[in-house]
């Protein structure tokens, strides 16, 4: 349509040779009824043929119990399984080697490849199995007594071998005979009220916190008689027994007077399942995985 600039669009008339309009008019603008190119129609038919072929070859039509499987037997699930298998095969060698070297040798200098694998794999395993209690950042949960794994204070030892042992066998569980084991006495009823109050002040004293100086002497005596067997004479604890160091700044259950008093009266301790499938029936992790987690935890800043 050749446009006449002086005319309002409403008045635009069709010229000779112009195609028909669709008959629609929007604010005076009419739409030409141009025929579609035929090849475009053919691409449309081709798409239909393709679509039919596709639904025959690939899983497509939803039925009551799943979809039609398709003639090619394609399945994303099987693909994922294959993919996992492929990676397992690729990693088989390195997993084997991780179980063969000394734990301490899995470090960036001696075995950078093993170390790298252990850190990455350990982080994934940790996120799956350990983070529920210890937190995704491994900082623990003080309110529930789940220890922080980032600091330099270890109940059962912070060397890579000790960490590995703890992960393998767990703590105070009945599934693994080699689990770490010890138990604090609940002193409610064993110690007098006065003695309890005094020993709390004594513990506050040796950990460098505010305390009532008048009770320290009595408290020291109570401590020496009742607590030192596990927590040692100087209160620095014993990692062999899992008895915490009471002189440092880190408190598993809190270091306030109330928290300490509660612990003295009722005793507190945590449990942890055994993870090594080799060590117990309930263990879920292979040796390579346990070792990877150990290396990962050890690398978080607290490892000794």
């Amino acid at each position: 349509m050749t446009e006449d600039k002086n005319k309002h669009p409403e008045e635009q008339v069709l010229m000779e040779g112009d195609p028909d309009t669709t008959g629609h008019s929007w604010d005076g603008i009419k739409e030409f009824n141009n025929p579609l190119p035929r090849w475009w129609l053919w691409t449309f038919y081709a798409c239909i043929v393709w679509g039919i072929g596709y639904t025959v070859l690939y899983p497509a039509w939803p039925l009551i119990n799943g979809a039609t499987p398709g003639m090619l037997g394609f399945s994303t699930r099987a693909n994922v399984a294959d993919e996992i298998q492929r990676f397992d095969d690729m990693n088989a060698d390195i997993r084997q080697r991780i179980t063969e070297v000394e734990l301490a040798a899995i470090n960036p200098t001696d075995n950078p490849d093993l170390y790298n694998y252990a850190i990455q794999g350990g982080a994934a395993t940790f996120a799956t199995w350990c983070s529920q209690c210890h937190g995704s950042g491994a900082a623990g949960v003080q309110a529930s007594g789940y220890p922080n794994l980032l600091d330099d204070d270890w109940l059962w030892g912070g060397t890579i071998d000790e960490v590995h042992y703890t992960i393998s066998h767990g703590i105070r569980n009945e599934d693994d005979l080699n689990a770490r084991y010890s138990e604090m006495t609940a002193f409610e009823g064993i110690l007098t009220e006065e003695e309890i109050g005094a020993v709390v002040q004594y513990v506050r004293n040796i950990s460098g916190q505010e305390h009532d100086g008048a009770l320290v002497e009595l408290g020291g005596q109570v401590f020496y008689d009742n607590c030192a067997a596990c927590h040692m004479d100087d209160g620095t604890g014993d990692q062999f027994l899992g008895a915490p160091n009471l002189t440092d700044a880190i408190w598993l259950y809190g270091g306030s007077e109330d928290a300490i008093e509660y612990t003295v009266r009722n005793a507190r301790f945590g449990v942890m399942p055994p993870w090594s499938a080799d060590a117990s029936e309930v263990g879920r992790l292979s040796e390579a995985e346990v070792r990877s987690v150990a290396v990962y935890v050890h690398s978080l800043g607290g490892g000794q």
Partner: peptide, 18 residues
């Protein structure tokens, strides 16, 4: 900065960030 957790207290009371 690693913000999970924001900081870690060490046994001598010092504060560590990662």
């Amino acid at each position: 900065p690693v913000r999970n957790p924001q900081f870690v207290m060490l046994s001598d009371g010092s504060i560590r960030n990662t």
